[in-house]
Nucleic acid binder design. Sequence first.
DNA 1: CGACAACTTGACGGGCGTCAACCGGAGTGG
DNA 2: CCACTCCGGTTGACGCCCGTCAAGTTGTCG
Lengths: 242, 242
Amino acid sequence: MGLEEVEGMNPLARKLQRLGRVSEEDVQHVLALPAIVKAVPTGHYLVREGRPATECCVLLSGFACRHKLAATGARQIVSFHLPGDLLDLQHLLLSVADHNVQTITEAVVAWVPMAAIRKLTAQSQAISDALWRDTLIDASIFREWVLNVGRRDAKTRIAHMLCEFAARCESAGLGSASAFELPMTQEQIADATGLTSVHVNRMLRALEADGAIARDRRHIRIADWQNMRSIADFDPAYLHAA
Amino acid sequence: MGLEEVEGMNPLARKLQRLGRVSEEDVQHVLALPAIVKAVPTGHYLVREGRPATECCVLLSGFACRHKLAATGARQIVSFHLPGDLLDLQHLLLSVADHNVQTITEAVVAWVPMAAIRKLTAQSQAISDALWRDTLIDASIFREWVLNVGRRDAKTRIAHMLCEFAARCESAGLGSASAFELPMTQEQIADATGLTSVHVNRMLRALEADGAIARDRRHIRIADWQNMRSIADFDPAYLHAA
DNA sequence: CGACAACTTGACGGGCGTCAACCGGAGTGG
DNA sequence: CCACTCCGGTTGACGCCCGTCAAGTTGTCG
């Protein structure tokens, strides 16, 4: 999706409306936020660990991931992000980035000065609540990921990641949870699940052989969602979607 | 520590002062929060998954952990908590608990109505910021834990957990980071690191054999903190202390 | 048609889990 | 004051899940 095709801050406004009862006036304020909109290529860094951040990045189209590096050089992806997501809201109150954010597809992002967001949160309790709620849901997802990489076996872990991605895409209005396109490579799935790309490949094929998913390149279909939920140990409660 | 020995909401007030520039007046408001203070035994549940929460629990003395369960019954501890910690601030804006909180020692806790906290955050931007900041730091710690269980080997993982615990204790004024008492069993360390208690035992003894730590029952001494940091791949930046 | 990234597959090995036994200190009750 | 109990910690043998290494294969884009 190119620059001309995105509809301004609408993805963000929609997300805030999902997060809480935000008034029409508040929505107008969000749409009026001062923002520099840019198209960026795959692999572009939006946040870098150790850097101070004075602007907040909003993903308008495309996909991104947050990741951290171990001393060995191993990478751990700690979250994936969809259009509408605020990519570094934590820097509203934390001065230095403790992780990286990088696009995994071509993307369009809006850079908003932190000061403008601060002003908005001071003006509107509803917006402030919605943003805080967003950070709380992010934290809840991180907790689930700790459980996922800490206590589930490889097949369950990958299935869980697929379920979460599908559920979040659907809830963001990006299509159906039972048929969707994965934006990430198997190596990125590996980095998100604490596995190797080789083993991710084996497990994806196993899920396919089990009939849990159907694959055509990166297109995934989940015919029997109840079955998949059970294979994946997936209970969407932690997503706190409306 | 019994009921009579804790000094009211002081641990919380001290924590908020560490989190941001909170005025003397704000501190008074915190100390004046309506609270029911209780002593609870080891293993007591303070938050239960699936339950709605209308009160917020503040840990005044003792230690607690948050955990989630996988379908197999395996438990994953996603964080440990120290005196002064707010144990379920997420329920300020999320209606249903997505995890459990349980004491791991005898403890004294204060139950504060959510409404009183809402009132406080509405009145004071500084308190609101401090609490939000607290939830952001929690999230940062969760991200580090995802990396820890996802990409570090067992020895490093345990060493990292020890470093984090030591650093947080010191920063909370509970003693020195180079000599401290662990409140948790090896099984709880295992559940926090995604390992088994058997392997935790092996790795603790390996760390001891390497000279990284000295142990006497649950008392840990870290003679060479720089060495330990390097073994543990520990960089305290993610704790966003001071 | 060549180059490259992503995916696929097989052989092999190791880190950590599993199982099972034992130890040792703290609390309890006779 | 000593047996008994129980929980937590310790140890060893064995095996499996997943990592490593290495070699293809496929699709895409110039």
